[in-house]
């Protein structure tokens, strides 16, 4: 342990912490390789929002209980709020900004607009990234599957039926050659 740190044994707290050198992190974000200096206690979510200005990934609870921060790591959906950024050395992160842009929308983004699958829009990037993860996983075949496998994304505006419509449409189109 760092000898410069004073530890309060009763509270288990560092009472006067010396700065700990930040670590070098190599991360691919939306196809772009980045070399970043991060502190070990920075989450991927805070890194994206505060340091990289990729605010499309949302903070809805910061505890893995809402899914608003869903991003894809090497194609798999996870909650960015519960990932310490340093643990992702060498991995590939895709956020909503990496899926599509206005004028060049990803099919899920277009389907969400068409089906009005959102209202306030705050859970939407997470819903879309989650839906992409669902498609990548390949375990959803019908509406009931979509509903269950999208259940890690809360929508307080209650757009669920429209989200299911949008996701199902893209899922089914993907099945066709």
């Amino acid at each position: 342990m760092n000898p410069a740190v004073t530890l309060d044994r009763t509270s288990g707290r560092r009472v006067a912490a010396e700065p700990i050198a930040s670590l070098t992190l190599r991360l691919t974000v939306n196809g772009e390789e980045r070399v970043l200096q991060v502190e070990p206690w920075t989450t991927l979510l805070d890194l994206l929002r505060d340091k990289l200005d990729l605010t499309g990934t949302k903070k809805g609870c910061d505890h893995g209980q809402c899914g608003a921060c869903t991003v894809l790591i090497d194609g798999r959906r996870i909650n960015a709020c519960l990932k310490l950024a340093v643990t992702l050395e060498g991995q590939e992160v895709t956020t909503i900004e990496g899926l599509g842009q206005p004028g060049n929308l990803h099919p899920l983004q277009a389907a969400f607009i068409e089906h009005d699958a959102f209202q306030c829009g705050y859970c939407t990037p997470g819903q879309i990234c989650s839906a992409q993860g669902l498609i990548n996983e390949g375990h959803a075949r019908n509406r009931a599957d979509v509903r269950e496998q999208m259940s890690g994304n809360i929508c307080r505006c209650g757009a669920y039926t429209n989200i299911a419509d949008a996701v199902l449409e893209v899922l089914e189109q993907g099945k066709q050659p």
Binding site: M1, P40, T43, H63, G64, L82, L84
Partner: peptide
């Protein structure tokens, strides 16, 4: 990290060394 980072954010777990 789905549980440990969560409880660390709540200051419920306060490890001084995190071994990834």
């Amino acid at each position: 990290g789905t549980n440990l980072v969560d409880v660390m954010k709540e200051n419920v777990a306060r490890p001084l060394q995190v071994v990834d």
